[in-house]
Design a protein around this nucleic acid. Structure first.
Lengths: 214, 214
DNA sequence: GTCTATAATTCGATAGAC
DNA sequence: GTCTATCGAATTATAGAC
């Protein structure tokens, strides 16, 4: 009776797929794309190699799926965080906090992405940026542009530069948190939310419309 | 004959030492600390292994000397850039431009430092941060604190968070410049100075005293 | 467990500069 | 003659092969 094995319903399949994604995230972040072994990923998920290729076309598709999953999840967070009818200062602070929390919650994937951006020669990287990272980045830039159009923040600055400033602060914190703890004179390494709020404060006061800042 | 190696005058001393530093920067950034080989570094500088230990106590001292050299050089730049009697907006923009230019001019060393900060478990990393990186960081934080005391910028924000915001934007740009070129909607990847100015603009307007911003 | 290869580090000698 | 950069050889530690 193969009924039990075939009674793998949608739930069981999704479970295998998500276990594969977790296992792949760990393996890719540890070994990089080239160094990662499909067999090892399958072993980590408790399935055989061929199961991997049932769920994903090839190694690169699996790789991109790992990152896309985290990106899509964060995109959903953006829906609730970037609301044009909220106070922009609160929005930006909420974005910083949720982005940094997302980085820390998905640390393996984040490290994977950062490593890929650093190498940035492969056309894997181009696909990654254009199809996976760019949508969320554009959401942030678009929010800033809309807020500027609505007069909520200054209109005479580059929204892309502002977005990169926010992201850069979080990425530096994420990459170097332990090292930051060694720097004297501040206690930011202890509290990610406090750091996010402080950065958002610094950046926002630069973004707020002058007429409202008095 | 080996005459070239033995025609060592004072100039050749500095030359041998600085060639070792260059060779070590390349080797360390390619292979990391553990993976780097003293023999390979010596070969790259055109000397034998034992000469390395004439100039540096051991491998770690060489490693730290490589990074310290770049840090000290940038420290000298800071002397001219962070002047409390200049306009703080211009100061911060000048800092951003010179820091990013320094990263790009010393790309191997910068990559080395970033890699070390990411691992950030070794006590090498602690030494690096405390003795080499921290002085320059504290200079920036100190400048911001002094400027706040002098009423040139807002006093009600965390100077360390502001400093990390500035540095994070530059490091993200440096790490991901090629990838940024793929993102549509901006032309920042082409022009580092334009990026630095844009970031400084965003951050400074948040730092400027409100009484002066109306 | 021994043997071997490779790594870091040390030592003594040489050669040129002051 | 002293000082210092350099060299080649020697020494130790360690990791992998057999």
């Amino acid at each position: 009776m193969l009924e039990t094995t075939h009674s793998s319903d949608v739930a069981a399949q999704a479970d295998g797929r998500s276990r594969l994604l977790s296992s792949a995230a760990l393996e890719f972040s540890r070994c990089g794309f080239a160094g990662a072994s499909i067999a090892s990923i399958a072993r980590g998920a408790g399935v055989v190699k061929s199961t991997v290729f049932h769920h994903f076309d090839n190694k690169e598709a699996l790789y991109l799926a790992v990152i896309r999953e985290a990106a899509v999840e964060f995109g959903q967070t953006l829906n609730t965080v970037l609301a044009i009818d909220e106070d922009p200062g609160r929005c930006i602070a909420a974005f910083q906090r949720s982005h940094l929390a997302h980085l820390q919650r998905n640390a393996e994937v984040a490290r994977l992405v950062l490593r890929e951006l650093q190498d940035s020669v492969s056309d894997r990287c181009v696909t990654l940026v254009k199809e996976v990272l760019s949508p969320n980045f554009q959401r942030l830039v678009g929010y800033l542009r809309d807020a500027a159009s609505a007069g909520l923040i200054r209109a005479d600055l580059d929204p892309a530069a502002a977005a990169l400033t926010l992201l850069g602060a979080n990425l530096l914190y994420f990459q170097s948190r332990d090292a930051l703890a060694v720097l004297p004179g501040h206690d930011l390494a202890d509290d990610p939310d406090a750091f996010s709020n402080a950065v958002a404060d610094v950046v926002f006061r630069g973004l707020v419309a002058r007429s409202e800042s008095s």
